[in-house]
Amino acid sequence: MRQSAGTAQVFRVSALIALALTAVVFVVALSVGIGDLPIPITTTFLAISNKLGWTTAELNRIHEAVIWDYRLSRALVAAFCGSGLAISGAIMQSLLRNPLAEPYVLGISAGASTGAVGIVILGFGSGAVSLSAGAFAGAFAAFLFVALLSNGTRGGADRTILAGVAASQLFNAATSYVVTTAGNAQQARDVMFWLLGSFGGVRWPEFMLVSVVVGLGLIACLAYSRILDAFAFGDEAAAALGVNVGRARLALFCLTALLTATIVSMVGSIGFIGLVIPHAARFLVGPLHIRLLPACAIGGAIFMVLADIASRVLVPQQVLPIGVVTALVGVPVFSIILYRFQRPT
């Protein structure tokens, strides 16, 4: 009887994983087909199978070029960026024991933006420091600022959020100052649009980098899944269970900063993915991180690709910054969570 129940549980989990991965494939294919030149979804699948050598179907050369040179890489980068931000949000919410924590709200994205802009416009470390490294330095600086201002985790959830707001304002102001004083008019326009999030310039090299970083980051975070579960009961409880709290916290925050910095350096600052998706994933699969983190990765991928589609179709003949679309969903959800979190129990 017990063996039969275990087999049924494995079957349900396998079916859910298969369904989720099918949904990711479908939304990516849907994204590839949407644009000024509509492409049937069957053409997308045939173009991919032709490239992999599985089929030899005759396709429109223009369609194939659009798929491989522009749209497929864009959709895949969007999927991995959504996964990385959702994973980062889940980790930060667990470490800080704060349902409102995520890289954008806590100023980590703003710090990464400042670091990246410093590399692009001021040329800090030119030839020695990459854009991603500059974004990582800015992200970690923002985290240290929030940690010091909120007095670690002892300042409480409200103080941590206020510290994040202060960090966002500080680093956004620094970014604006650099752009307006050191950049020319064209750089200012490009950077300000980029800071709101854009997948317009990403291609296969960006996909290779973000897929490796997010993939390895997810594996590393899964290795810490039991430790993240322990943090749910507080630092003292985690230490009593044998967790080296300081080392684990530093490693996980470094992973979060690396994921956020890599994404920001490619597509700009995109908010609220790390806030919305972890809460939805907990509702579906529960709080255990061995299930929560993969669910966040899949949910973040689907949400980001759908947001990218919306950014291209909401306004005819114009592409909205992706951050505008995610904010339209994220701000109402943030308000609901904030209301429930502060409501007396």
Rank of each mutant, 00 (worst) to 15 (best):
V13H: 10
S14N: 04
A15R: 09
A15K: 04
L21P: 06
L30H: 09
I34A: 07
G35W: 01
G35Q: 00
P40E: 03
W54A: 14
V66H: 06
W68G: 08
S73M: 05
R74F: 09
V77Q: 03
A78M: 05
A78E: 02
C81F: 01
I87A: 12
I91P: 04
M92K: 08
Q93I: 03
S94E: 03
P99G: 09
S109M: 06
A110L: 12
A112M: 00
S113K: 04
A116P: 10
V117L: 01
G125E: 04
G125N: 06
S126E: 13
A133W: 02
G134L: 10
A142D: 06
L144W: 11
V146C: 06
L148S: 12
L162Q: 09
A163E: 12
V165E: 02
A166F: 03
A167Y: 11
N172R: 05
N172T: 14
S176Q: 12
T180C: 00
T180R: 04
T181D: 00
Q187K: 10
R189Y: 06
M192A: 13
G197N: 00
G200R: 08
V202P: 09
R203G: 04
M208N: 03
L209R: 13
R226Q: 02
D229G: 10
A232S: 14
E236R: 07
G246A: 04
A251R: 09
L255M: 14
T256V: 15
I263W: 05
F272Q: 03
A281W: 02
A297K: 04
G300Y: 01
M304L: 15
L306E: 07
R312E: 02
Q317E: 15
